[in-house]
Every structure is written in C-alpha cells, then in structure tokens.
Design a protein around this nucleic acid. Structure first.
Lengths: 394, 394
DNA sequence: CATTCTTCGTCCTGCAAGTGGAGTAAGTAG
DNA sequence: CTACTTACTCCACTTGCAGGACGAAGAATG
C-alpha cells in the first residue's frame, strides 16, 4: 500500500483547494493560499514530484505571459461506499471528487458484514474493470449505525446484527490495499451535501436523514461533530410520545417508531387492511407488499389516509426539529434520505411545524431544504471523508 | 484605555497557562508549552516588560540551582458581572481569576438597562473602593437573554423589556475604561464551570441552567458554541407538551412554562390555595408570597404535593435532556441555576429519566451532576470570558 | 571546606522556512 | 518593433527557533 500524501500543511492546503475549486493557475492559487510566489512554486513542484498534482496546458492570457494550469492529478481515484439499511451504493471519483462510476444494489444489511462487504467489493471490482481504473488512493465507507471513528468499527448498532465490533476498516483496507475510513452513513451524507450539495457554504448545519431509520448529521464549524462516543445525531430514538408505540430499541415512543420508512410501510399495511385507503389496498393486492413510496403515490393520487399519514409524520419531525433548532441554532437544515423523495407535502409540513414552534431568532434566516444530491450524497461524502484524510499533512 | 495584550501566540499560551495553572518555574512552563528554553526566556522577558507577568521569589531546589517563579502579574484585575432575571452579581478577580471581592443584590432586570447597569457599576465602585483596587484589565458581562456576541448587544430578549439593541458593551466599556465582552448568562455560567468548576476537564459538555428561566450552554471542543444567530442553547422554549399551558413567549407547552422558577412558584400558589399542600398554605400566609425555595422546603418536610411538583419537573427536564443527549452526545451534563439548590430529589428524577430514555451508547459514561460553583459560576465565567480575550494575541 | 553533581538560566551559533526583489520568459497592444 | 503586462525563477536576506556551551546556584559527599 503505497500511500502518497502531502508533506506539509501548505501542500495539503493547495491540494484541497484544487480539489474543491478545480484546476487553476499558480497565480490564482496564490491569491487564496497566503504564500509567497517562491514558496508556492517550490511546494507545487514537490506535489508534482509526488504525482499528486500536474500541470496541464496554459491558461488564457490575461494581458501578459500565459500561466500554466495546475490540477489534481487525473490518476487519482477515491472510492465511496454507502451501506444503507437496505442498499449498497458504490462510487469511484477522481481527485476532484467527481463521480466517474456509480452503482447501487438492494441489499439487506442484516445479511452480515461478510455478505454485504463482499457484495460491495464485487461492485467495486465491476466498476473498476468497466472503467479501466488505476489503483485507489483511499476509500470512505458509511454504515447505518454508530461507529467508533478512530477504530473504524461499528459499536452496538441496533439494526446491524453481526456487525458489532466487526473490523470494517481493517478488512476493507486489507482487501483494497489503500487507507479506509468508516463513519456513520448519516455523517457521510452530511459531508456530501457540504462538499457538493446545497450545504456548500454552510458552516453550521444539520443534515436530517429520513429513511428506513431516522438520523442526523451535525456539521459544526465546517467539520463533522461526532460526539464523545461517536453517536451524536442519533435522533431516531428520541422519545416524542410517551404513549407511543414500542420501538425496536425497546423504548417507547421513539421518533423512528412513529415516522420512518419502516413505520410508514407498517402504517400503510394497516390502512390498506382496515379499508381506510382503497389506493393502498389495491397496491397491496398488486404487489403483495407496501413501501413508503406507495404511500407517496397514494397521497399524490389524493388518498386521504396516505395524506394524513404524511402530514402527521411531517408534524412529528417538524416538532422535534424545532427542538434541535432552538438548541443548536444552525444556519441550515437539509432533509435527505429515502423519505425526502415523498415530495413537497412532507417538507411543507415539516417546515410549517418547525417554523411555528421555534423562536423567531433561531428561524429568522434559517432555510429548511431538501437534499440536492439524493442517493449520491452518501458516496460523495464518503469520498470526501477519505480525501480529507489523504489530502492532509502526514 | 491602555490595553496591554500579549504580542504573539506564545505569549498568549504562557499567560493562559499561568492563569489556569498558577505560578510556576520557567522549566515547568517549558514542559507544557512546547518551546525551547531560549525562546521561552525571551517571551517571558517580554511579558515581564509588558507588566503582564512577573517573577516572584525562588522555588524550592530540586537538587540544583533554584528556579525563579513566574506568575501572572498580581496587579491584574478582571471584572465579572452576572445580570440575572432577578439579581445582579459582581466580582473582581485577580489575573488567575480568583475572586477577590464579590457582591450580589436582588434586582429586577425589567427595570431596564440604565437602572440595572447603573446599579452594577455602583457595586463595582463599592468593591473597588473597599479593596483599594487598581485599574481593570477587562470586564465580562452576562445578561439573561440572547446576545449578539460580536456587537455586545441583546437581541430581542423576551424577559428584558427595554434592553433590545441596547449597546451594553459600548456603554460599559466607556464607563469602565476597559475592554468589555457581553454574552448570554447561561454561556458564562458554562464557562465558569469549565474554568473552575466541575467541568474543568470536559471538552464537550452541556450546562443546563434551571432558574427563573431555563437555558443551556454548549461547550464544544473546549469552546462555547453560540450558534449562527447567537441563540444556541435556548431550550426554555422547546415545546414539550402540545397540550400544555401557554408560555409568556406566546407558544404552547414550553418547558419553561411547565418547569422553571417562575412556573414552580405559580404552581405552589395554586397548591397552597387549593388546599393540596398545608405546608405551602402556611408559608403563603406567613410570607405573603411563595418561591421555588418554599417548594423545596415543603418537599424536604415531606409535603406530598411539593414532592410531586418536583418529581414532575425533574421528569420533564430529564425527558428533554434525554433528547439533547441523544442528539449531542456530550461527555458531561452540569445542572446549575437557582433550582439546582432544590436538592437531590430533583437531580435524582432528572437522572433517572434521562438515563432511562436515552440510548446506552450515549449515556454509558455520561455523568449528570450539579454545578460546583453555584451562584459564582456566572461571575467567574464572565471573568474567564474577558480574560480569554485579553490573554490572546493581538 | 573542597569537590562533584544537578538543575537553572543565558548567550550564541546554526539551521530551516519563507519573504520579496531582481531578473527572465512569454504574452498583448499599438 | 517598442512599450507594457503578466508569469515564473533565482537568490539574498530576514525571521524564528532549536539546541549546545557555559556560567550561576544550590545539594550531596567526603
């Protein structure tokens, strides 16, 4: 595993600047990175010697000698793996974190680490062969549960039987032959939106994932905040109704038990069978099963029961979000995950409840918006996670 | 206003180290601050030249030449002002933030900035004359409402009529002739506990103030987190019961409306008049009024109604705290403010509810403790706030 | 008391990083 | 072709700092 990394902070800054801002001239780099021309030239030369950046052609003249363009080496490849509760997504990116190849597959995380990681590696191999790709510089991985970030292992994940303490990072690092970092899937989605999505210019924001489960990523001062045990943002099991249903975690009235992909399909089944929704009953008969997407379709078609379910869910989420907004006072809230696809009615309900319930000072200039990257937030964030690591001095 | 501050980060580090660790030899400083002996000597000489530190006597020999002791100049004085909803506290500290003089007075913040700040300045003058004190290096101020920290002015404070946009920092700075920083009172209490209280070694913790109102200070990575609009930690108006009473803020079911100093005395009055509590009825007759302290006394005396009120309040707080713990995953929670004096039964209820309702991963190693500094947390934190500013390079 | 050892503080030299000016290369404008 | 602009390189000089040498001051030992 030959890992080439920048030698010092200057090189690291230049690299990250090129990654985030794209190719540019030395002069432009100098404007952003506060270094003298001479120093900058030396460091860029060293980066070229390490094959981390390269010069490519000349820029347009700005009235004098044309400057040569510097860019992150086009050889560089990052890998992003997003393991969700019910799917695995894999992407290969270039050094600027543009997605070059992408693949998703339905996969139940409960099949255990061997099966899931094996399948993920199969996808990687497939993508690499299809695209004649060179070796990887690093890989980021998201898993749907709490992670000890420093060790790269899941710790007591509630929905991942068999994964507890499984050495995800070690395994993948050995298999791929490159550095690997593992984090919670919600955290990497937040990072994705921060890097390439709607949160690009936000320094303090929340990313709320509404999917099979419910979770939240905290970005503070531009960096992920993981909490002292690495489980910050675990809002799915906040108690929002002391008389609510019992959750899989054993507690009562968890948000996740009241509104989530799992809860929604459960409620849909009840609505279909009880005859409260003709639309869902028909769907159930056709497909033999019901998912959150069916509820969205039903609401779209004007089904009252489905619409009520979504409104009630939005209200629950909005109410809890209002608490978090009052507490954390973020500059932006991004709603992502599978349920974000339900559409505008959910967002509208979340927004109106959250705005109505929080104090004006906190909500005065607070956008609550849908994710921009959708599915791909996870893999892009995973790539960003490892690229931040590889593109740092060491 | 002659402000002397360290010239560079080294001097700032040395200064803060002496402030927090007390007088010590150059050699000991060198162990903590990673600098060569020569460099350190130069910087300390410069600090002496600026009258920020001085040498005082010799240390015990450790087997060789005795080292000279360096300490923060004993001339240095900081001022801490803690304006609460119903009181004003003022303290003068030395350069190590030891409280040299302290005064509290009952004062209704609703009397407006002129009256309150005037009274605070009177107290300062009194303390200074009584203690023959030299000029102040800086002053920190806490006010019971949201503050624009950079400007030093309260913004839309709900319980401080007349204070909105009042230039607190400018006014006091002109009056005192030294730099002034203004922050929320809960934030400075958190800072106090971080500096001299139970949170000394905690980097990520919550300080929950249960007083006339309810608020929370967030310390993240050792620093206060104020949020994007400076109103982070405003948990008093989180909705915890959609069918609860209407709060002064206009919303329904705010935590503060259900449990706070104000809510408790209100409930006590009801209990006394309805005959549910003989103890409180007697107290009401004696004193003509009831406060949270009376409820505490009643509970202490075995009064069932009072005990129930405290338990119910603790449950409310614990439930909300559980949400915040799941979300933020802190390493410590400190309970402070006037209601913390109610005693163990409140803390016990908060603890059991919070531990029961959060996930084990977040609570596994999470102490929930009472404030160590009590009343003085605010003024110490205020002094710390300004000393961090004055003892920084610039 | 003299000697030796330890620790402390200062002086001084040398290294390493980095700045900014002079000089060169390569373009545009007229 | 000349004048001017911009880009890049080379180099001398400055700055910051580390660490060795050395003297000062005290303890331990004989």
């Amino acid at each position: 595993m030959t890992v080439v990394r920048p030698e010092n902070v200057h090189q690291a800054r230049v690299l990250r600047h090129l990654r985030d801002g794209g190719p540019r001239s030395r002069a432009e780099i100098g404007d952003t990175v506060a270094l003298s021309r001479s120093k900058l030239a030396v460091e860029i030369d060293r980066l070229v010697a390490r094959s981390l950046v390269e010069t490519s052609g000349l820029a347009e003249s700005r009235g004098g000698r044309r400057s040569s363009i510097v860019r992150v080496s086009p050889q560089i490849r990052f890998l992003g793996i997003d393991i969700g509760a019910t799917s695995v997504a894999v992407a290969i990116t270039d050094g600027e974190l543009n997605v070059l190849a992408y693949a998703v597959e339905a996969m139940d995380v409960r099949k255990g680490p061997d099966a899931v990681l094996g399948r993920a590696l199969d996808l990687v191999t497939k993508l690499r062969s299809e695209n004649a790709m060179q070796s990887l510089v690093g890989a980021g991985v998201g898993v749907p549960g709490p992670v000890s970030f420093s060790e790269g292992i899941p710790v007591s994940p509630p929905i991942m039987p068999g994964w507890n303490q499984f050495p995800v990072r070690e395994t993948l690092s050995a298999e791929l032959g490159c550095p690997v970092l593992v984090d919670n899937d919600v955290n990497i989605m937040a990072l994705g939106e921060k890097h390439a999505g709607i949160a690009k210019s936000a320094d303090d924001f929340l990313f709320v994932k509404l999917g099979t489960g419910v979770g939240c990523g905290l970005v503070i001062g531009g960096n992920l905040y993981r909490g002292v045990s690495g489980c910050a943002g675990d809002i799915g099991h906040i108690c929002v109704d002391e008389n609510g249903p019992t959750c899989a975690c054993g507690h009562v009235g968890c948000l996740e038990a009241l509104f989530s992909g799992a809860a929604l399909s459960r409620d849909a089944l009840v609505a279909a069978r009880s005859g409260r929704s003709e639309f869902l009953a028909r769907r159930l008969e056709e497909a033999g099963t019901l998912t959150a997407a069916d509820v969205a379709d039903a609401a779209e078609a004007g089904d009252a029961a489905a619409h009520a379910m979504i409104r009630e869910g939005g209200r629950r989420v909005g109410l809890m979000l209002a608490s978090l907004i009052s507490f954390f006072n973020p500059g932006l809230v991004v709603i992502g995950g599978g349920l974000a696809r339900i559409g505008h009615s959910l967002l509208a309900e979340i927004r109106s409840t959250a705005y109505r319930t929080s104090l004006p000072l906190a909500t005065g200039n607070l956008p609550i918006v849908l994710s921009e990257l959708g599915d791909r937030a996870g893999v892009i964030g995973a790539a960003r996670l490892i690229s931040d690591h590889v593109f740092s001095a060491g």
